[in-house]
Design a protein around this nucleic acid. Structure first.
Lengths: 327, 327
DNA sequence: TTGTAAGCGTTATCAG
DNA sequence: CTGATAACGCTTACAA
């Protein structure tokens, strides 16, 4: 391994000078700079991040905790994080949530010993334990979920997004709209979305019909059954995830109902799954990749922490249309 | 930050002794061990990985390069890698392939300066440049792809898997089986699979019908069109990815052909996508998570490098059945 | 402008 | 069995 000393010797200067040149500090002649740069190039020298971090306490890693289960969403966010981090010279260290909390504690400790610049948490809320484990120096931010504690976060306004989605179906002429909710445990995603749906329905004078799912594909079919049991004449289903939406589309066709002629289906997230059914799912898009980038920027500018709301977008595809009666 | 000195002071011993206790070396009485352990616990001390690595040159990070595009596959592998790494006290550093090669060069340099224990490459081949960039000390291994260079790898036997898949369709009674291939650029995945298909078809005295796709969903419909143009009476389609398989199922139904009554469809990979269509895709499973774990183990036991073949498995679901004529 | 020297938090060698 | 002490590769006062 070639060290700063080797370079210094090669260039006929002291290690300190080499360091100065590398870090663009002042205090050397142009001639020595050139000699040093020549030596660096010649020896193909690369400074040791570890030693540097040990000394300066300035780190170059960002921690990323993702739930590697329902992945399409996390995957998009990760792409944004990875891009933004690399651009700025940061490395990304990966961990999984959705595992035992002792694991995530261990992971946070590792990040602390690596003096991470910050931690990004996908689809999970920041707990006081996490905050405490990281210590005051390391910021943590959540993505795609916003508790109302004022913790740093990047997320859409879930309540408003669901409200807009429901309004869209109402405007198409639907009155009997069922909601296939996500895991009710997920207080900060499923609940605001449900509130948004209810608000729109109530404003329009329509009755609400809801069933609880898990966000996963498997819960789509039983959820649909529950909804149809409550109201067999539903003309639209709003699912809180594309996976459930896709399952609903498939299941409806199995039951002999056409989409969207008999029943419209609307998904959520605009993950690739939404394109994997026919007709393709209309859905609410979150700017996931951008959210990952924003999270990195916020972490690195540690002042602007606090919640950041990004815009959702309605994407119209083949799975929604006006209801039978009004067409 | 609490250091080894703080612990030493608290326990009334020297830093050296604390280090000995932590690392389970010999040379201290039971009494001092207990005092040290007490101090560690009391101060909630965590040794600094950076300083430790700087000194010992033994690292605790593993690099992971994944193509974050056609993600379901990579995601499963990543889960296995992450699990196995964590179990052994290693952190995972994430990078993306499929970006500019200068980026991946930079990424490998970063890994070298972090003294990574090794690098795992998903769905990509190890180039001589990569090997050179990492230097002789850091092993690199590819997962889910096997060039024939003898480089370290963990993969199924793609030729055999495709052969078995085709044999399965033949045994069901199909004779007109179309192959929807992946990106032909992917020499070490698409090509062996195509050879396996051709071998089985030729052995059975059947004509081969192939079209080239991209592995992605979008290429499914045009690929199917190409196949049907060559032989409108195909009774089975073997797609080299679940995504293309799913697209074929959806497209067939759009064309008014029933699956599997009119046409059987077989996918590849057993990713979640295979369950997102109705009927669910029969497919060839790769033990992706296990492959990730094996990769970590191989990296950490740097002797058993070299290609490792794991078993594929045929998974029968609703998308395949006997052809019309023979039923 | 440049070099010397003292650390950053560990571990390893060598005395005691 | 234990404690000084010297590295690991880098940065940064402080001197020159």
């Amino acid at each position: 391994m070639t060290t700063i000393r080797d370079v210094a010797q090669q260039a006929g200067v002291s290690p300190a000078t080499v360091s100065r040149v590398m870090n663009g500090l002042v205090g050397y002649t142009d001639a020595t700079r050139q000699r040093v740069e020549g030596a660096i190039k010649k020896l193909n020298y690369e400074p040791d991040s570890l030693a540097r971090t040990l000394k300066t306490r300035q780190t170059s890693v960002i921690g990323l905790l993702a739930p590697m289960v329902s992945d399409a969403l996390a995957s998009e966010v990760m792409r944004g994080v990875e891009d933004a981090a690399r651009e700025r010279g940061y490395a990304v260290m990966l961990g999984r949530t959705g595992v035992k909390s002792t694991f995530i504690a261990g992971y946070l400790r590792t990040l602390r010993t690596y003096r991470a610049a910050g931690v990004i948490l996908i689809s999970a809320v920041i707990t006081p334990e996490m905050r405490q484990l990281l210590g005051p120096a390391i910021p943590i931010i959540s993505v795609a979920i916003s508790d109302n504690s004022g913790s740093p976060s990047v997320a859409i306004n879930d309540e408003l997004a669901a409200y807009d989605a429901t309004r869209y179906l109402l405007k198409l002429g639907h009155r009997r709209i069922g909601l296939l909710a996500g895991d009710p445990v997920s207080v900060f995603v499923a609940q605001p979305r449900q509130r948004g749906y209810e608000r729109a329905m109530i404003e329009a004078g329509c009755a609400t019909v809801t069933a609880a799912g898990t966000f996963f594909y498997e819960s789509g079919a039983p959820g649909l059954a529950q909804l149809l049991q409550q109201d067999p004449d539903l003309t639209a289903i709003f699912a809180m995830s594309d996976e459930m939406g896709a399952a609903v589309v498939n299941e409806l066709q199995k039951l002999g109902r056409r989409v969207p002629e008999d029943v419209s289906v609307l998904g959520f997230d605009n993950t690739s799954t939404s394109q994997h059914v026919h007709p393709a799912l209309s859905t609410i898009a979150q700017p996931l990749e951008e959210m990952g980038q924003i999270a990195v920027r916020k972490i690195l500018r540690s002042r602007d922490l606090g919640p950041r709301v990004v815009q959702h977008r309605l994407i119209k595809r083949g799975s929604t249309g006006p209801p039978r009666a009004s067409s």
